[in-house]
Design a protein around this nucleic acid. Structure first.
Lengths: 111, 111
DNA sequence: ATGTCTCGCTATTATTTTCGTAGCAAGAGG
DNA sequence: CCTCTTGCTACGAAAATAATAGCGAGACAT
C-alpha cells in the first residue's frame, strides 16, 4: 500500500476499518475494552473481569491495545482506556444494545 | 446459566455483549459483515473482497454468522446481511469513522 | 530482617484455530 | 462433449490460544 496521501478518493474508511477489524478480531480484544469501560483495572482485576482468560493472551491483547493507543498503563492503577480508547468504547456501546436486543439468538445458538 | 428471566438485575447488556464479542472476536468476522454492507456477494466474491482469506475459514465464519442470524444465504446471489445483520452493521459503521480518524496509529503500528 | 501478601508478568506445554493449496461436484453455456 | 464459474471440502503446516505453574518486585506487618 502506498503511503502517498490522496490515494483514496473520499475517506479511507474502508481500509481503516479493515485494519481496526484485524485488531478487534482477535480473541478477548473487544471484551478487554468493554471491561475497562468503568475505569482502570489492575492486570489481575482485568483477568478476573474477563472470566477465563490466560495471562499470556491477556498480556498480548493489552500490549496490542496499548500499541494502537486505545489503552494506557498507569503506574499504580493498572490499565485504563485512553482518550481515543474511550471514544472507541462509545462507538462500541451500541453493539451492546444490539446484543441485548438479540440476546436470545446469541444465547440459544452458542452451544 | 439459568434460563429464568429476571436473573440479571438491570439489562443483560454486559453479558449479551460478551457473547457477541465472542462471535465478532474471531478472525474475519467483522470484515465479512463489513464487506457485505453494500449488498449480496457470492462466496468467491466475498473471498475476493476480504483479500486473503482461506475458503475454509470463510466457510466457517459465514456459517457462524448465518447461525446467529446476521447473514442469510440466497439461492443465486450468494450471501447478504439479514435484517438484524443490517442493524448490526449500522451499529458497526461508527467504528469505521473512528478507524478513519485514527488511521495513522493503526497504520503505523501494524508492522 | 523475615514472612506474607498481591502485583505484573513469563515459561512451558497442549490444544485449537487459521492458513495455504489443491481439488471436487454441480450447474450454466456452448 | 468441453469449458467455465460456482460453493465448498480435505489436508498438512503454521500460528494463535489455553491452562497451569511459578518468578521477581514491591508493600506491609511482625
Amino acid at each position: 500500500m502506498s503511503k502517498s496521501p490522496g490515494r483514496w478518493r473520499h475517506h479511507d474508511t474502508s481500509n481503516a476499518f479493515s485494519l481496526l477489524a484485524e485488531q478487534l478480531g482477535r480473541r478477548w480484544a473487544l471484551r478487554v475494552i468493554w471491561e475497562l469501560r468503568a475505569g482502570a483495572l489492575t492486570f489481575r482485576g482485568l483477568q478476573a473481569a474477563c472470566g477465563h482468560i490466560s495471562p499470556s493472551v491477556l498480556q498480548a491483547r493489552v500490549h496490542e491495545l496499548v500499541r494502537i493507543g486505545v489503552v494506557e498503563k498507569i503506574p499504580r492503577l493498572g490499565y485504563r482506556l485512553s482518550g481515543s480508547g474511550e471514544q472507541l468504547y462509545l462507538q462500541l456501546e451500541p453493539l451492546g444494545d444490539w446484543a441485548a436486543g438479540n440476546s436470545q439468538i446469541l444465547r440459544v445458538r452458542q452451544e
